[in-house]
């Protein structure tokens, strides 16, 4: 595969450094969640969307806000509710009395970072409004298409508890998220640190984003993304990615495996991971590291495993331990 970075080591180094700086900035406020921060930055570098899942109070919104601030990009948030309409996301036309004409009022989707909070609380029609935006990076209002500003990253959150009155995301929509990131409870030490930091000289309980400095700009993010897209990827790595994804289709306990979009996203994510590691080539470990986050929401487990409380991560761990690693 091509390598546009070869011969331009300094530029590649700058991109890597910028991406690592971004990660460091986000980690200033999102404490004790190194893996989550790494995955969300990988999603940004790979140009993919992320679905973040975790119980309330773990800092999902904070993560996205910190990311948007560090990336120096425009950030919008939509709180998904059962009465949210598609036009509330994409925008709508309205009649302007003064000029006696229809004008388009753009919705919150027109931004660089869109936080779709509790996405599973809106009905399927509204959720589907995000599909075109996520996949095509454009929005159609009243028959007219508007391209979205790049970079465009949707970070949706959902709550695994309190499932009453929710609308689980259809498989077609979850497939459009590159990553599904789990946020779990922080370690005791980190939780102590969070508690101290939030309560120090503060009246409310919100985390202060002041420590996060903007270290990137939208063009800077695009440059990083292009740099990641140009990494060297050996054919054996591509074969390894496909082998993993194909194994999900035949694996015992998996009712439905990942499709080709899974392979594509796995490779994109592996490239972004390699860039963050400071390498201008992808190695099998990059693939292995991002595989759970890329594949876990693309698998449908059998009813038996669901009932017994097994998660796709259990199955993926077993699968990754069984698929032969490449040797060139």
């Amino acid at each position: 595969m091509r390598n546009s970075n070869q011969g331009d080591g300094a530029s590649f180094g700058r991109q890597t450094e910028a991406a690592q700086r971004l990660e460091a900035e986000v980690a200033k406020v999102v404490m004790g969640q190194e893996r989550v921060v790494r995955e969300i930055v990988v999603a940004l570098v790979a140009g993919g969307h992320a679905l973040v899942e975790g119980v309330p109070g773990l800092g999902k919104t904070l993560l996205v806000r910190a990311m948007a601030r560090a990336a120096g990009s425009r950030f919008h948030r939509i709180q998904f509710t059962p009465d949210l309409m598609p036009a509330d996301i994409t925008g709508h036309t309205m009649f302007e009395q003064e000029n006696r004409r229809f004008v388009v009022r753009r919705g919150p989707v027109f931004c660089n970072f869109l936080l779709a909070d509790e996405i599973n609380r809106a009905p399927a029609k509204t959720q589907a409004a995000l599909l075109e935006a996520m996949q095509e990076q454009q929005v159609t209002i009243e028959g007219k298409t508007f391209p979205l500003e790049r970079p465009f990253l949707v970070m949706a959150t959902q709550n695994p508890v309190e499932q009453e009155g929710t609308y689980p995301l259809p498989q077609a929509q979850t497939d459009r998220f590159m990553f599904k990131i789990f946020i779990s409870y922080p370690e005791e030490e980190q939780e102590l640190q969070i508690t101290r930091q939030v309560t120090r000289d503060a009246v409310g309980d919100s985390l202060d984003l002041e420590p996060v400095r903007p270290v990137l700009t939208p063009p800077g993010i695009l440059a990083i993304q292009e740099s990641a897209a140009g990494l060297t990827v050996d054919e054996q790595i591509v074969a390894y990615v496909v082998r993993i994804v194909r194994a999900t289709r035949d694996w015992s306990g998996i009712e439905m495996g990942a499709g080709p979009r899974g392979s594509i996203n796995l490779l994109r994510a592996a490239r972004a991971m390699a860039l963050l590691e400071g390498r201008d080539y992808v190695i099998p470990d990059d693939v292995k590291q991002v595989a759970p986050a890329v594949l876990r929401h693309r698998l449908v487990l059998s009813a038996d495993l669901h009932i017994e409380g097994f998660t796709p991560d259990h199955v993926l761990a077993e699968l990754l331990a069984a698929v032969d690693a490449p040797r060139v």
Binding site: I283, P284, D285, K288, L320, A321, A322, V323, D324, A325, R327
Partner: peptide
Amino acid sequence: IAASATEVE
């Protein structure tokens, strides 16, 4: 060493 082990592993 398992067949699924990468170089780094």
